[in-house]
Amino acid sequence: MREEACALVTAMAPGEPAAGAVDDGTRLTADLGYDSVRLVELAMALEQRFALPAMDFDELAEVRTVGDLLGLLAEHGGEG
């Protein structure tokens, strides 16, 4: 799941990661150019891809990095 989620994060990102690859420390806003609307779209795509229940917008608002997002996915039933 991790590799697929990272690939989706990269594919949907408005910007390119500075180092060319995303990792747990990659910042969604500062490094990849995500805004709140794009982050919601990403969450919906991940929910659909991994058949997860809908994420709470308050939880999603706390997500800053790819690692945060992967942790949230794991909390919602995705594999680590």
Rank of each mutant, 00 (worst) to 15 (best):
E16Y: 09
P14W: 07
E75Y: 02
V66C: 04
T10C: 10
E41W: 06
T10R: 14
L8W: 04
L8G: 01
G78Y: 02
V9D: 00
E4N: 12
A51W: 02
L72Q: 00
M55G: 07
R27V: 09
T26C: 04
G78Q: 11
V40L: 13
A21W: 09
L8D: 05
E41C: 06
M55H: 08
E75T: 12
A5C: 12
L52M: 12
V22K: 03
D23Q: 03
E4F: 01
A54Y: 06
A43M: 09
S36F: 05
L28M: 06
E4A: 14
E4L: 12
A7T: 11
L52G: 06
L39H: 00
Y34I: 02
D68C: 05
T26G: 06
D35L: 02
A5P: 04
A30Y: 01
L39P: 01
F57H: 12
T29Q: 12
D31G: 03
A61N: 12
G20D: 06
M12F: 09
G80P: 10
C6L: 14
G77I: 05
E4V: 10
V9W: 03
D31I: 06
T65K: 03
C6H: 03
V40D: 02
E16W: 08
L60R: 05
V66S: 03
C6T: 12
E4W: 02
A19L: 12
D58V: 13
L42A: 05
A18G: 03
V22I: 09
A5W: 05
Y34T: 01
E62F: 01
E41V: 07
G77L: 07
D56Y: 06
G33P: 02
T29A: 15
T10M: 13
T26N: 06
P53K: 10
A11E: 15
E16L: 13
L32A: 05
P14F: 08
M55R: 09
D58H: 08
Y34D: 06
G15L: 12
D35C: 01
C6A: 12
M44Q: 13
E3R: 09
S36H: 07
V37W: 04
A11F: 04
E79M: 10
D58N: 13
G78M: 14
F50Q: 10
D23V: 03
A54M: 11
L60V: 06
D31T: 04
R49A: 15
G25A: 14
G80M: 09
R38W: 00
A30E: 15
H76Y: 15
A43L: 02
D24Q: 08
H76I: 08
T65Y: 00
R27G: 01
E3L: 10
M44R: 13
C6Y: 11
D24G: 15
A61V: 07
R2V: 14
V66I: 08
Q48W: 08
A13H: 07
D23R: 03
A45Y: 07
C6G: 00
P17H: 04
D35S: 07
S36W: 05
G33M: 05
V37D: 04
